[in-house]
Amino acid sequence: MTNFLEKWSSRKSDKPKAGTRSAVDAFRVRVAEQKAYLTEFEGDAAGFNKWRSTWFQRVPGGFGVTIGRDSIDAGQGLNYVVLETTAQVAEFLDDLAQHADNDGSFQKALEENRSRRAALLSTAKAKSKAPAAKVATSKPAAAKATDAKSVSHGTEADGPKRGRKAKV
């Protein structure tokens, strides 16, 4: 056990915190994932089944490529293209990564998009917590059951409801 601790203790560091990666770095990682999916598709097009994760889809005339879940454009409104070959898809992804590295306005758009999505997520979380408090203030189930019994003026002997046969 001591050898293990001696060997690795010099490399000990703090874990990276979630969300510390910049929006541009996260975008680069997603572009790399898309390139891996494209390579996998090229290897076995018939067996490829990860379409829901890809930025590229088969469309008439080739492949439709979008910039994923980022509602941003790559300049002049460009956020969706149709390309004829997988080689063109790979080239588009390379150019997109280079665009993310070198274009300040694109980087700013990535950061703004991250902020917008974070705000939407926090709003959604706040809304999901509000109904839980509302349920706690509603009438207890036992009170509802006694209310239902008091409203029912008939007896079970009156006959079956909704056309059901009476149990004998």
Rank of each mutant, 00 (worst) to 15 (best):
M1Q: 10
F4N: 08
L5W: 10
K7D: 05
W8M: 01
S9K: 11
R11Y: 10
D14E: 12
K15H: 11
P16C: 12
K17V: 14
A18D: 07
R21H: 07
F27P: 06
V29K: 11
R30E: 02
V31Q: 06
A32E: 09
A36H: 15
L38E: 01
L38Y: 04
G43M: 14
D44V: 09
F48L: 13
N49F: 11
K50F: 11
W51P: 08
R52I: 13
S53I: 06
R58N: 03
P60F: 02
P60H: 01
F63M: 00
G68W: 00
G68I: 05
D70K: 12
I72G: 04
D73C: 04
A74H: 01
Q76T: 15
V82E: 02
T86G: 01
F92K: 03
L96Y: 03
L96E: 07
A97L: 03
Q98T: 15
Q98W: 12
A100C: 03
D103Y: 01
K108S: 12
R116C: 03
R116G: 05
L120S: 04
K127R: 13
A130Q: 01
K134L: 12
S138H: 03
P140C: 14
P140A: 10
P140H: 13
P140Q: 11
A141M: 15
T146S: 15
S152W: 11
T155G: 13
D158R: 15
G159P: 10
G159Y: 09
G159S: 14
P160V: 10
R162V: 15
R162Q: 15
G163I: 07
V168Q: 00
